[in-house]
């Protein structure tokens, strides 16, 4: 699994330059590893995705197969697998 396809939305798209991107990770990478790879590749996303004290910002969502990683039992340590759907959103609201 050298690359993971990540779909981006809303205000993250202009930063990434598209709707999705293939992000390089190491074999056996976790959701947290992917998060690190994303902010390394797009430093502008760091302030949106990462808390000042590290970890995923509460104002952003990283979904694995439709579930926010913060609510998965292993959180950011959740191992990624082939063919999972990964979505990355800023916190959004409206109504």
């Amino acid at each position: 699994m050298p690359e993971v396809r990540v779909r981006f939305y809303a205000t993250f798209r202009p930063i990434v330059g598209g709707k999705h991107a293939d992000v390089a990770v190491t074999e056996g990478a976790s959701a947290g590893d992917l998060l690190d790879a994303i902010v390394t590749r797009w430093p502008e996303l760091h302030e949106h995705l990462i808390r000042p004290d590290g970890g995923l910002s509460k104002r952003a969502n990283l979904f694995v197969d439709g579930r926010a990683v913060r609510f998965l039992p292993e959180g950011l340590k959740t191992p990624l697998r082939e063919s999972q759907e990964i979505d990355c959103f800023p916190a959004v609201a409206g109504g």
Binding site: Y9, A10, T11, H48, R59, A60, N61, D87, F89, P90, A91, V92, A93, G94, G95
Partner: peptide, 22 residues
């Protein structure tokens, strides 16, 4: 910055329909 900030937040840039994908 992610929601209400003028011309920056998702609600300001995309309107309420920023919700559709999530």
């Amino acid at each position: 910055v992610n929601i209400t900030s003028p011309k920056k937040g998702g609600l300001s840039v995309y309107g309420t329909n920023v919700l559709m994908n999530v």
